[in-house]
Simulated assay, not measured.
Amino acid sequence: MSQNEAGQSTDDREPLKQIFDDAMKLFDTIENGKEATNSDPVQTSIKAAISKFEKATNMVSMLGLFSKNESLEELPTETLQYLLLPALLGTLTLKLCSQHRKEIIDVAEIYFRDFLQRCKDYGVTDVEVPQPSANGEGTISRVQSEQAKIATMVMTREAKIKRYKEQKELKDKLSTLSKAMTSYNVDDETKRQYFTTLLLNYVNEALDELASIEQERPILEYMEKHAGEPKPHTDRPRPPPLKPVIITKDAVQKAVFGLGYPSIPAMTVEEFYDQRVREGIFPGGNSSNIPHTTLQNAETDGDEADKIQKEQLEEEDDPEELARKRNMDEYKDDHRRGWGNRYNRS
């Protein structure tokens, strides 16, 4: 199959550059959008962009645009952007939500490693592609001495600080070059600087994503391993907190309290006794053993007993009762009704 300098096949298929540009527009919309990544419209856009980037990758392979025997300087300027394809596919793959997470990170890892290795082969960067730990358990680190571990931590920290500074400089440079790329008469040198800077920026992002994948994988493997196991036995649930109980005199007062305080249970004396019998606190028995005299009836009986006793004392001419009544009459003569009310004072 023949090809021209722009990477376009001679048949009637869609040009590679147009497919790549359309996919990049979708990619920028996804990256800069404010809608949630797991929403249906965003997921649809992600899948559409992945499909376009995959199509572009297949066309790059068929056209044979890259070779290990070439250097970065030998590649045409327009071809440099296609080195980004694995990194773009890895970034979009991590945003998928409809598949198993472990499968997603496995595919994304392949993309990022392929991208870093290709950039190293072409001399874009000299970073070593990090190798995955054995089964995610850090077998190598366990056999290292304490001094070797400390040295590794120091080197890792210094590398992170260095990459952070480089990342900031690359962002600033990209911002300037992006504005220059919008010009109609942009020259080839500016395009080449822009694509090279974009590649270096994605090198750092790919390293960060691989580090995150290495941390996430053991968690996913552990969850997958223990997914079918029964949950461990938990302690007995705590009993519900106690609630206050208002003992009312009769059913009428219970209705009033029930309406005024619906969250506080109210019951009559009989209902309270029945509840305690059911709980085994009070002795049980038939209904004849349950006291049916409410507090209101008990108060009424007490008043009637006092009246009967007073009447008996009056009939028997009890001296103490007669003296009490005489003193009360004299008190009433000296203290007229209403004197204690301040509204009746002159």
Rank of each mutant, 00 (worst) to 15 (best):
K17G: 13
K332C: 03
I290W: 01
T91L: 10
R238G: 03
H100I: 12
L80F: 02
R345K: 12
S61P: 00
P265R: 14
S133W: 05
D21N: 14
V154E: 15
A251N: 08
V203R: 07
K332S: 05
M62A: 14
K149H: 05
E54Y: 02
L207T: 02
N185L: 10
M59A: 12
I110F: 09
T93L: 01
D208T: 09
D126Q: 11
K173P: 06
E315T: 09
G64R: 02
R142E: 13
I290M: 05
E73N: 15
H226N: 14
T57A: 13
K25Y: 10
D28A: 15
L174Y: 10
H100S: 12
Q117P: 00
V60F: 07
T300D: 13
S287I: 13
R278H: 07
D318R: 01
A108F: 06
D301R: 10
E109L: 03
V129W: 00
T57C: 02
V127I: 08
R236G: 01
F20N: 03
D274G: 02
Q275R: 14
D40P: 10
A23M: 01
H292T: 14
Y331F: 12
T77Y: 04
H292M: 13
L85C: 01
M267G: 08
A227I: 03
H100N: 14
R13I: 10
K179H: 09
L259A: 13
S346L: 07
I30K: 14
E271P: 00
L177A: 06
L313F: 02
S263N: 09
A211C: 00
S61W: 04
S39L: 11
A151G: 04
Y184D: 11
V42D: 00
E189W: 07
A87N: 06
L88M: 12
I140H: 05
A108D: 04
M1E: 12
V277L: 01
R326V: 06
